[in-house]
Amino acid sequence: MRHSESVTFGGSGLDRAAHLRGDSEAVARLRAGGGQVLVLWRGRIPVADAGGLVWLDADHPLVADLPAPVFLGLDDGVTRFAVDLPGWVPAEGAPTPAFLDQSRIRHPRLATDQGFAELRAEMTRLTAREAELAATARAIIGWHGSHGFCAACGAATEMVNAGWQRACGQCGAQHFPRTDPVVIMLVTRGNRALLGRSPGWPEGMYSCLAGFMEPGETVEAAVRREVAEETGIRTGAVRYLASQPWPFPASLMIGCAAEALSDTITLDPAELEDALWIGREELLEAMAGQHPVVRPAREGSIAHFLLSNWLADRLL
């Protein structure tokens, strides 16, 4: 495995067993014969306070009354599924949305040392396999939650193919999960890297520039366009570095290196609150939490991966 594949949510070798998805009887037998289910609530994943995902048996009281779960794959002999928990409201009420929510939401049918947590807050505490399973579960469950009606005729659709497809009984249209490609760029000029911060981010937090690809656009063209739109910087050579599934809600972050051809930043305030050039020495301070102004991108993100590996000269 290339070093670039070690990014959080990167491929852990999970056997997704796609050949079984169309065999509903086989999937049902796997679920009944020791299948383990990951129950998500409002996009949150169930975790133990000591760390790690919480898997429940298919006949667990929290699972038994829920709809058929999505088949995630075979995890070293264990069949993995995921399902959404709709309708439940905790006694203390739903938490207030926060940029990085560290709270645990307890459910009466989970153990006292278990609860629902934001995946972004837990991603660095999970094993590579757990992270891939959690990211897959969050993305596919989120897709089902937002695609309950046919885009062609508006009729209600139903889940088929073990959760990897939705079918419209009205017009016969078939709908499949989507992934939105996003370019994220390590833009450098000599010994400096270009960083930006979006409005609403925590004070001092900076990251690599990023943006959604547009129809009819290559990865390289998207990199050059986004950097120019956000900062006015012209870029030349672009090369692929690494990718990261980012299930918030369903993106694929395509990490690239881009060589800047200009220095002067002309900020687009609709896109960024600030942008700056930072040298390697300053970035080292920022990554260590010692810079007076700049805080690094969140650990576990591909931006943090790209910046830390640029500092270590390990980008392939």
Rank of each mutant, 00 (worst) to 15 (best):
C153N: 05
G142Y: 09
F99I: 10
G190R: 12
G148D: 14
A139W: 11
D180A: 13
P177L: 02
C150M: 10
M185C: 14
T179D: 09
L194Q: 15
H107I: 07
I141W: 05
L194C: 09
D113T: 07
H147Q: 04
R189C: 07
A193S: 14
R106Q: 04
R104T: 04
L133V: 04
V182A: 11
G148S: 14
A152D: 15
T188E: 15
I141Y: 03
D101R: 07
R197I: 02
I184H: 07
A210S: 15
L110H: 09
R120G: 01
P97G: 06
T96Q: 14
G148Y: 03
T179W: 12
G172I: 06
Q165A: 09
G115W: 03
A173D: 08
W143T: 01
A151S: 13
E130S: 02
P199R: 13
M185V: 11
T127D: 10
E132P: 05
E214T: 11
M213P: 02
E214R: 13
A98R: 15
C171P: 06
G145E: 09
Q170F: 07
A134F: 04
Y206H: 12
L194F: 11
G190P: 11
R192F: 02
E214W: 09
R129M: 11
H175K: 02
Q165K: 10
R106L: 07
H144A: 08
S198Q: 12
R120P: 01
A98P: 00
R125Y: 04
I140C: 02
C168M: 12
S198G: 04
C153V: 05
V183T: 15
G145Q: 04
M159W: 00
I184S: 09
G200D: 11
A156V: 06
V160D: 15
R166E: 08
I184P: 04
P97R: 06
D113G: 12
R129D: 07
E130Q: 15
F99R: 12
Q174T: 15
T124W: 01
